[in-house]
């Protein structure tokens, strides 16, 4: 079994985002980058399948040199090899997916994992787009997987319920929190990762379809208002919710 895991290099969840001077990108100074948390579930699932059924897992990341840090973490967790699809320019989800799909055409994996979303731009598109470019079935927000006899049974999170689906391989699976508990890279894994090469390939060109015009922070939160206490305050509260806040 050949498994590809697409990993993305994103700002740490604790980052206090500042908008850059161009007003269109974030200010990256002082920002810590991490392996996208949803991609950690994807890496873990790929490793579990490999441990059970054998095969090879490759981690693929599209972006700058700095993405190697994230690829190293994936290697330290146990991934066999890593590929950096180099491009220093900002890409939208379409162009990222296109670049990755072009590479995957040559790698021909049986199974492709992505995190259900990257926590930087939260577009939730890359998994579906890769599947579309490669003409493969895709399963999004997967919380449980079972692989047997060339078929994959998956459980997906849907509004208020779980949906059970079955797909044939090759396919794309987008991992959701709950799919597994990602392992920590062990110190031995980290040492071994140092010896594993990261292959660098120029990413296939693709035009972004979405242009960012500007970024704005949400307005500062206004302090709340206390309209009174106890039952006596209810009529006034209702009036304000209706007339001022216009929410009821």
């Amino acid at each position: 079994m050949k498994i590809a895991v697409c990993v993305s290099h994103v700002p740490d969840t604790e980052t206090k985002v500042k908008i850059g001077s161009d007003g269109k990108t974030i200010d990256t100074s002082g920002v810590n980058y991490i392996l996208n948390p949803y991609d950690e579930f994807a890496v873990e699932e790929a490793l579990k399948i490999r441990e059970k059924d054998g095969g090879e897992v490759v981690a693929v990341s599209l972006g700058e040199d700095a993405n190697k840090e994230t690829l190293r973490k994936a290697l330290a967790m146990g991934i066999d090899k890593a590929v950096l699809l180099k491009d220093e320019h900002e890409r939208d989800s379409y162009a990222v997916a296109k670049g990755i799909a072009e590479y995957l055409k040559s790698y021909e994996p049986d199974l492709i994992f992505v995190g259900k979303q990257s926590i930087d731009y939260d577009n939730l598109q890359v998994g579906g787009l890769i599947a579309e470019f490669l003409g493969l079935p895709s399963v999004s927000v997967a919380v449980k997987l079972e692989y047997a006899d060339g078929k994959l049974k998956a459980e997906r999170e849907i509004e208020g319920a779980h949906e059970h689906v079955e797909v044939t391989l090759p396919c794309v699976v987008a991992a959701q929190r709950g799919l597994n508990e990602p392992r920590y890279p062990s110190l031995k894994g980290i040492m071994q990762a140092k010896k594993k090469p990261i292959e660098e390939i120029e990413a296939a060109q693709a035009e972004s379809r979405v242009k960012v015009l500007g970024m704005k922070k949400p307005p500062e939160k206004q302090p709340g208002k206390i309209v009174g206490e106890g039952v006596d305050a209810v009529p006034e509260l209702v009036r304000l919710l209706r007339e001022e806040a216009k929410v009821i």
Binding site: A76, P185, I190
Partner: peptide
């Protein structure tokens, strides 16, 4: 080194 940082961050997370 990158691997030293990865070691530290891993133990921190643990």
């Amino acid at each position: 080194e990158d691997d030293e940082i990865l070691v530290r961050n891993t133990v921190r997370e643990f």
